[in-house]
Design a protein around this nucleic acid. Structure first.
Lengths: 194, 194, 194, 194
DNA sequence: TATGAATGAGCTTTCATTCAT
DNA sequence: TATGAATGAAAGCTCATTCAT
């Protein structure tokens, strides 16, 4: 039990170190030895938990992506109306991107870079299903535009990544008002106008 | 004259090789020797045109970014109405992102990664001014929402990068219809509803 | 214990390889890879023991210089008379320079070249103090000329470096007779004539 | 004539640049391109005057060595007595080493380093003959010790190189008094005591 | 004679990975 | 399970030298 916990702790420490270092320097500029040092283990120990560097970063990606989706859907219930459901999910996602900055930046880098392999990428999207279901419901009810889910995502969810990045580079501050404006922009872009 | 042209050709070949290889493998996974080989020069020759690898990628970024903005604004005239102007610019940008795929992917990687240094990043944004001016006009005329330019960009322009990426990974095909839908989503998100 | 010994052995092998190769080819003409090969380690292993090439040569210098002074003063006792003391030290130095040829040549190159950094140079001279003390005593007793220690060194000790070099280039042979002549010349140049 | 002069000027500029740069950085740390730049010529031009880098430094050595000996013997006449002759030559050499610092440092580096090839080294000593002749005369007259010329050189001439070096590193200042003391030490070491 | 552009070879150093313990 | 020492391979970069002009 204690031994198992220690193992889990080490694995976690490695994942966290990977996130922080890759965020600062990028994947290839981050040596395994540095990750090991930050996680307080020997470089050789990494290979007890992961096959190689690519595997480490793939697994880190999947882990972070699943934290992201878990957070996104935690308060959402399928009984909610489409409008309410979307707002609940959207605000959780915004929350995550603005508060869990390290995780969010890591995902942004993974998603725009050839650093993650395809299988892991696919694994990462899996858990987005509840949002797709909500959209399907919204389309059926004539509330959401009948367009590709990718378009819906591009216009309602993805802008949050961009906003998180520029806030992080110090260009803007996203307060409650900006958040509300952002939500209105997101909703405007995908809802059907009557 | 011929000598000067040959120099320009070599510099260009290096820039193009950098774009293609960084797109495929990422910045750090692309060795200078590979760039040299693809540009048909010796590794040492790169250093006649650029100070070092960082300088090469910075200059490539600035070059690509300026191609992008030049293309974006080529058919836009300040005499156009806000609606017309935005549509013209938006469609040129969409065109660029979907046709000049290599350039667009390169920019996406640069913008989401710590691979470009700050001065070059700032240099890169400079040429976006006409769009900001148009938005200012639109806000004054009560056509565009009075919100931060970053928000406007996040919702009306940036989604195109995401769409380009997923199209490139083979997930979707952006045809004329999807483009029109995307434009409507973009415009909906930033225009004021009456 | 055995591991520690192996570490020390490797470090020593690297130091000895550095001396030999720098003697033959000079500092900059000696690649790290050649040093590694001669010490029977991988090039990367050098960097476990030394920060970089400059550090390797600095540390080698300090090591050799301290062997030199240790040898020079080993049989000297402060209870000896000035004459006896000087003769004892001088002959030990001569011994060292003529027998430990590799070490002596290495020092000659370091001392006449910008290849060692200043801090290491200063560190290297530290241990010459007993000779300076002996000279101070000699001056106080009216046996040694009251002139700068640098002058005393230039005329009584430094010529041995020159003789070692020319013997090594095959121009002369320093036998017992030449050594005695050299000692007389050294002593003549610094003692006060009555 | 003017063309010839220009050629000679370029050759000289290259020699002088070599001396200065090798003094500062050492032979191998001095790139041909830097020498070319300092001499205000193209790198390719060096190869019109010298076969390669080794040849350049060899020829520079010979040139500097011959300046040195020319200076040393300029005021000496074979009609002078041994004592007077030695003093005249010694003081000229001291003058040279303390005033033509760049030349003297360059020679010190060449003489203690494997950077000059053997033929050039031999060529360099040739012109020392008048001093050897003087010593032969001194030995015949019972004024100079009947010992190897190398020993005489080691004790009477070579110390000046050491003194020049330490003065140059800022450790001492060689004024008229120190010079006289040095001369006395030199003379003491080689003259026969009666 | 003189050049600037070009380069192949080789340098120092780093790093993902392994291995003896 | 855990490690620190070790390394082969490869990276970025430099430089003596050449070549087209």
């Amino acid at each position: 039990m204690a031994a198992l916990q220690k193992s889990i702790d080490k694995r976690n420490a490695l994942i966290e170190a990977t996130i922080e270092l890759v965020n600062n320097d990028g994947f290839h500029a981050t040596p395994m030895s540095k990750i090991a040092k930050m996680a307080n283990v020997s470089p050789a120990t990494i290979y007890l938990y992961f096959d190689n560097k690519q595997d480490l970063v793939n697994k880190t990606y999947i882990e972070v992506k699943s934290r992201y989706t878990a957070y996104a859907f935690e308060t959402y219930r399928e009984t909610m109306s489409v409008e309410e459901g979307f707002e609940v999910i959207w605000k959780r996602i915004a929350d995550f991107k603005l508060k869990e900055v390290a995780d969010a930046m890591f995902l942004a880098q993974c998603d725009n870079t050839p650093m993650i392999d395809e299988p892991s990428r696919r694994e990462g999207i899996k858990h987005l299903q509840p949002l797709l279901d909500l959209w399907a419901r919204g389309k059926a009810e004539g509330i959401i535009k009948p367009i590709s889910d990718y378009l819906l995502y591009a216009y309602s969810i993805n802008p949050l990544s961009f906003l998180m990045l520029v806030e992080n580079r110090g260009a803007i501050k996203i307060g409650p008002q900006e958040l509300e404006e952002a939500f209105q922009a997101a909703w405007s872009s995908i809802k059907i106008n009557r």
